[in-house]
């Protein structure tokens, strides 16, 4: 073992299937690490705005929701948000089982869960649209409540939307036979991204509705 390291047992000339697997595995590990680091940097993006929201709410505003033109703004609608959150968390769980089905080569179940995920994701986006239409907090540019709420949830909404597109593209790829039972890094990345988007919502849900 130690010996064959120094003088490579197989070089660029080999085209054996075994070598191919090693290369696939090593490339996959690199891409996975890169993708996780990308998610880390995305976490910082959200954290920055979350910091901004907490800072403005705690250090700058004397009351929350802030008082604008002599009226205190209303709180957001917790009941609907709780319902909408369940929709998104549910889509995270279905995505997890979609990937598990793929790993177990159960294609029909994969398709079911994948479409369930996409529909739940779209449902969440629709719910967000309803929420935006009904939030009486003065719009995006009215005051810092609206600014932080619409910026953070809007950014999250963009992530959800991109995630839905990502998942749809992945589904198309699976139909075209791009992924096999053993080589499906795209699905792994898509699942991680979708989980990440859900977990960001856990934080936002707490900060805007339950705090």
């Amino acid at each position: 073992m130690a010996v064959s390291v120094a003088v490579h047992g197989h070089g660029p000339d080999d085209h054996g299937g075994h070598d191919d697997d090693i290369i696939y595995q090593e490339t996959r590990d690199m891409r996975l690490m890169g993708f996780v680091l990308f998610l880390v940097s995305d976490v910082v993006l959200f954290s920055s705005y979350i910091f901004a929201y907490i800072y403005l709410r705690n250090s700058i505003q004397p009351t929350w929701p802030p008082i604008v033109d002599g009226h205190q703004l209303p709180r957001l609608d917790t009941a609907f948000a709780a319902f909408n959150s369940v929709v998104l968390f549910g889509s995270g769980v279905t995505m997890h089982f979609a990937l598990e089905s793929w790993k177990h080569a159960n294609k029909p179940r994969f398709n079911t869960f994948m479409w369930l995920t996409i529909f739940l994701g779209l449902g969440f986006l629709g719910g967000q649209g309803y929420e935006y239409a009904h939030a009486q907090i003065g719009g995006w540019s009215g005051n810092i409540f609206g600014a932080s709420f619409f910026t953070l949830t809007g950014m999250h909404g963009i992530h959800v939307f991109l995630g839905v597109c990502f998942l749809f593209a992945l589904w198309i790829q699976t139909q075209r036979g791009v992924y096999t039972e053993h080589r499906f890094f795209g699905l792994t990345a898509g699942t991680l991204y979708w989980h990440f988007v859900d977990v960001i919502w856990v934080v936002l849900f707490f900060l805007f509705y339950l705090w």
Binding site: A82, V86, V93, F196
Partner: peptide, 16 residues
């Protein structure tokens, strides 16, 4: 991430 999602469900229960 799944753990945090489960925690999110706890938050929803508390909210409900």
């Amino acid at each position: 991430l799944l753990g945090l999602m489960a925690f999110g469900c706890v938050l929803v229960v508390l909210a409900s």
